[in-house]
Amino acid sequence: MMTSREPENALILRIIGWSAVIVLCVIAFFGSVLFKSTPPERGAVEMLLADNEKGFANVERGYEIRFPDDYGLHENYRQEWWYVTANLKDSEGNEYGVQWTVFRSAVSPKKGEAWNNQHIYMAHAVLTTKDVTYKSERFARGGIGQAGVSSSPFSVWIDDWQWSSSSESPFPATLMGGEQDFYFNLDMQLTQPEVLQGEKGFSQKHATQNVASYYFSVPAVELSGTLNIDGKSVAVEGKGWIDREWSTKALSDDQKGWDWFALQFDDGGSLMMVQVRSENGPYRFGSITSAAGETQRLESDEIEMTPVSFTKVSSGRYVPTHWQLKLKNYDLSIETTPLNEQNWLPFAFPYWEGPVDVSGSKQGAGFMEATGY
């Protein structure tokens, strides 16, 4: 982590390794784009298709997820990510959204040491207000100290962007990320136990094919700290959501993108809802958790997801940003409205992600992600 290394060394590593990182990132994330006449916007989906699965571990039913071990690395699988989102407010009631994500993707099942390391790290830091989306992306390779994951104490980092604790437990923790025009430094505290998505953490992604990931969420995290926006420091607090997921092939070739919601209600409950879109229609899954921490798995035929309106984003594409979500077995009917409709993130693989407000039969807030548009 940057806090335990000289800044000059980190800068030298960044300069020396940049060309190699770019080449490996192209191979890892866009190999199929370069050789298949596939639109660049499908980069996120292409990463998860994992054209070459040989040598990586398979995701199978029966794996027992353990804590805190499974917050850590799973290098036998092709990709994984640590995903933090947060809905925050300042003392005047102004709303903010924070996203902090670290992705790991393997070019080869042979790990390699030092500069021969075959694992690529990519990180996103995003701060959203009602008027502006501040965003930044970084790349690094494993094995040279610029990015990685440690278990004692727990830490996930790329340069000075880090989720770190002072013990083997991931909580309580500090979350840091950003650039010159925005930066966040937040304390995180777990307030509900983890939720195992799917069948005890085995998360099926396709109706008929054996395509899956291991997936758990932390549906209730308290956050407090400061945002630095264009040189102004703002004290904030609010609620966060964390996803941990790892796989070798998490999507099928016929699947084109997904719409994902992680919502926290004012009554203390929460909802995760996803649809993966394909030529044969959407495959949906999710979970609903009570304020007491009791979770029910949601089947595809229980979930209704309908876009209410579309927004033309900076890329010129239209993205569904207002949604109606229903669970007929729970008398739940809600609408989500984005804090900032223009939360298009033009990263190496572009997507829409940002904070949303919830109204209807329940009130609350959360995050939405949309890819493949």
Rank of each mutant, 00 (worst) to 15 (best):
4 S>E: 14
7 P>H: 12
12 I>P: 01
13 L>K: 14
14 R>L: 10
23 V>K: 13
26 V>F: 10
28 A>G: 15
30 F>Q: 13
35 F>M: 10
40 P>N: 08
54 K>W: 06
55 G>K: 05
57 A>R: 00
58 N>T: 06
64 E>Q: 12
68 P>W: 04
78 R>C: 04
81 W>P: 00
81 W>Y: 12
91 S>D: 15
107 V>S: 11
109 P>F: 08
109 P>A: 13
110 K>W: 10
118 Q>N: 15
123 A>W: 03
129 T>V: 06
134 Y>V: 04
141 R>D: 03
141 R>V: 07
151 S>N: 15
151 S>W: 04
153 P>W: 09
158 I>A: 10
159 D>V: 01
161 W>G: 02
164 S>E: 14
174 T>Q: 14
174 T>W: 06
174 T>R: 13
186 L>N: 02
189 Q>H: 12
195 V>M: 11
195 V>K: 03
206 H>L: 07
210 N>C: 08
214 Y>S: 06
226 T>L: 06
233 S>V: 03
236 V>P: 15
250 A>N: 12
252 S>M: 07
260 W>E: 02
261 F>E: 04
267 D>F: 05
273 M>W: 06
274 V>F: 13
278 S>V: 01
285 F>H: 06
293 G>P: 11
295 T>D: 02
297 R>S: 15
313 V>N: 12
315 S>V: 01
322 H>K: 13
327 L>Q: 04
339 L>S: 03
341 E>C: 06
342 Q>I: 03
349 F>L: 05
352 W>D: 00
354 G>Q: 00
355 P>H: 06
361 S>K: 05
363 Q>T: 14
366 G>P: 01
368 M>V: 01
368 M>G: 01
370 A>S: 14
